[in-house]
Amino acid sequence: MNTKNNQQFRRSQDLMEKALLTLLNDPKKPKITVSAIVKRAGINRSTFYAHYLDLPDMLDKTESKLRRDLMADYPHSVPLSEPSFVPFLNFIKKHRDFYVAILKTRTTFPLRTEQEQLFSRVINPLCEKNGMEDEDVYVLIAFQSAFTMILRYWVENGCQESPEEMAKTIYQTLPACLQQ
């Protein structure tokens, strides 16, 4: 029986994620649909819906998985600086096609719960240092909204600037209380 988190369930999920990434990287740029994903993955449509509510849900969950992979490679104590953005930007560039799709569908931005590591390691300590602990969630929102739109523009335009150039741009747009 294919129950949640058994070997077959995880295998189906891996097949769907690979299908999604393959479709996103296809030079012909086919329309990404549930039908296209299940066909490419060789699974039934009902299997897709056992894993995801819909295509945006799949994109969100795939993004969360990619974010966990990225954070696993980051040092635990990262100061907010231009160099601290470069590994992240390299990761975004490597997965550019995925991020073009996910940033187009972004209608909200993740708040404290999804960005707990960023919040607890970086935003909150800097806000406390600058006497803004009561405003820390607003600082996070300002940071995320600017960061998201900058990334969206960068990936939609083919990542023409280097990750180092983008790191400088992003750092310069940070709220003043986050600049060291």
Rank of each mutant, 00 (worst) to 15 (best):
residue 163 P to M: 06
residue 89 L to E: 01
residue 124 N to D: 15
residue 167 A to F: 00
residue 131 G to K: 04
residue 124 N to M: 14
residue 40 R to T: 10
residue 77 S to I: 15
residue 47 T to H: 02
residue 174 L to R: 00
residue 95 H to K: 09
residue 22 T to D: 11
residue 158 G to E: 10
residue 57 D to L: 08
residue 153 Y to T: 14
residue 62 T to R: 04
residue 52 Y to A: 02
residue 37 I to G: 00
residue 97 D to T: 04
residue 73 D to F: 04
residue 29 K to I: 02
residue 115 Q to M: 14
residue 62 T to P: 03
residue 2 N to T: 15
residue 63 E to A: 10
residue 163 P to N: 07
residue 75 P to A: 11
residue 149 M to G: 06
residue 20 L to I: 04
residue 169 T to E: 04
residue 99 Y to P: 01
residue 155 V to W: 01
residue 129 K to E: 13
residue 119 F to V: 09
residue 125 P to E: 13
residue 96 R to Q: 07
residue 33 T to Y: 03
residue 12 S to P: 05
residue 44 N to P: 00
residue 125 P to M: 12
residue 13 Q to I: 08
residue 95 H to T: 02
residue 128 E to V: 14
residue 142 A to D: 03
residue 169 T to I: 10
residue 88 F to Y: 12
residue 27 P to I: 00
residue 90 N to I: 12
residue 108 T to M: 09
residue 71 M to V: 10
residue 117 Q to S: 14
residue 13 Q to V: 09
residue 1 M to F: 12
residue 153 Y to P: 03
residue 171 Y to M: 00
residue 164 E to L: 06
residue 104 K to T: 12
residue 126 L to F: 06
residue 126 L to W: 05
residue 108 T to W: 09
residue 18 K to V: 13
residue 140 L to A: 01
residue 63 E to M: 06
residue 141 I to G: 11
residue 126 L to V: 07
residue 153 Y to I: 12
residue 105 T to N: 05
residue 157 N to G: 09
residue 129 K to N: 12
residue 177 C to F: 04
residue 172 Q to A: 08
residue 46 S to K: 10
residue 107 T to G: 10
residue 51 H to M: 07
residue 67 R to M: 14
residue 50 A to I: 02
residue 58 M to H: 03
residue 26 D to G: 01
residue 150 I to V: 13
residue 42 G to T: 05
residue 93 K to I: 10
residue 179 Q to G: 06
residue 42 G to D: 02
residue 100 V to N: 02
residue 81 S to R: 13
residue 9 F to D: 13
residue 72 A to E: 12
residue 155 V to Y: 01
residue 87 P to S: 03
residue 55 L to Q: 07
residue 115 Q to N: 14
residue 113 T to P: 05
residue 47 T to I: 08
residue 165 E to F: 02
residue 97 D to H: 07
